[in-house]
Computed example of a mutant assay.
Amino acid sequence: MDGAASEDLVTYELRGSIAVIGLNRPEKRNAVSDRVVNALSAAAERAEGEARAAVIHGHGKHFCAGLDLAEHVEKPLIDAVKGSRQWHRIFDRFERGSIPFITALHGAVVGGGFELAAASHIRVAEESAFFGMPEGTRGIFVGGGGSVRIARLIGAARMGDMMLTGRTVGAPEMERWGGVSYVVPEGQGLEKAMEIAAKTAENAEMSNYAILNALPRIQDMSSEDGLFVESIMSALTSATPEAEERLRAFLEKRAGKVEAPRNG
């Protein structure tokens, strides 16, 4: 999977401590098939073995225009169910893995492409990015985890609106809705995503692991159960040698203080 060979459905490159994973079906607007999802799973496994963070992007003019409908329309009912569950397992690997995954979004972020982005931890959208959930107009329903992940990001009502009407939403509005964290000028998405990935890669590994795995689970718990798990994770992360060294560095003024944002 090294390099960016045209025959690869997903490209993979290690840049320092950052794995760069690219959807590579530009002629299909990077539509997601079962083969693409399996290739993403292999890339995630490799990234977790050798990187401290990862960036997912799309080659060509679009991040991902969604499900490969040509493949989907021919599936028997049981195969469609099994395929959806496979997507769930693989996208869960991104969301609840051991390293942060950041998506760089441009052009179409539609259907399954939005579901993939929602499984990442931080989403960076170029101003050109547009988001769509056209399932209602296609006679289908989401199957890649969107009913959980996207609905939690922007709310079930907004997601339902997009699915019922087929309308698209631009990057600035999606940022206001909570679907993306950063909006950057055209052509700067991958650069910004790499910058963010490098920042997260500097964190203590145990802290990153706790953030990626405890937060989504706490969200599914009652308040009391969530607070209990928070206490356990707080104690576990604080007990690591790396945490002790980082805290001592701060107390001894070898580490900087939290500063106000430079841009307001």
Rank of each mutant, 00 (worst) to 15 (best):
F91G: 00
D225K: 14
L190N: 05
E115W: 04
F228R: 14
A51D: 13
A118N: 07
L236Q: 11
T103Q: 01
V148R: 04
D225Q: 15
G58V: 07
G113T: 03
L77F: 11
S120W: 01
D225I: 03
I211T: 06
R29K: 14
D161A: 05
G97A: 11
A214M: 14
A193Q: 09
V258L: 15
E48A: 14
K28N: 09
V169Y: 03
S181C: 00
G179T: 01
V73K: 12
V258W: 06
G170E: 09
I102M: 00
G160A: 10
G170P: 04
M233K: 02
V32S: 04
D161E: 15
R138G: 01
A108I: 05
H88K: 06
A125F: 03
Y209A: 14
A4Q: 09
E205D: 14
R158L: 12
S41M: 12
G155L: 02
I232Y: 09
F130H: 13
V55F: 05
L23H: 00
A44L: 11
S120V: 12
E71A: 08
D79M: 06
L247W: 13
M133S: 07
I78Q: 12
L40G: 05
S222G: 15
A151I: 07
F130R: 14
M133D: 05
F250R: 15
L40T: 04
D220C: 06
V32I: 15
N24A: 12
A204Q: 11
W87L: 10
I78P: 01
G264V: 02
R167L: 09
A31D: 02
D34P: 07
A4Y: 07
I150Y: 03
P241Y: 11
E244K: 15
A129L: 02
R123S: 12
E191L: 10
V183T: 02
R176F: 01
M162K: 01
G226D: 09
L105P: 01
G160C: 12
S98W: 08
S207K: 09
Y182M: 08
A70V: 06
E173S: 07
M206E: 14
P100D: 06
A4M: 08
R262A: 14
T240K: 04
R248C: 08
I232G: 07
D79C: 00
A39C: 08
R262M: 12
I18L: 11
A235N: 12
E205Y: 11
M194H: 11
R152V: 00
R93F: 06
N208V: 15
E7L: 11
E230R: 08
A47F: 13
P185R: 05
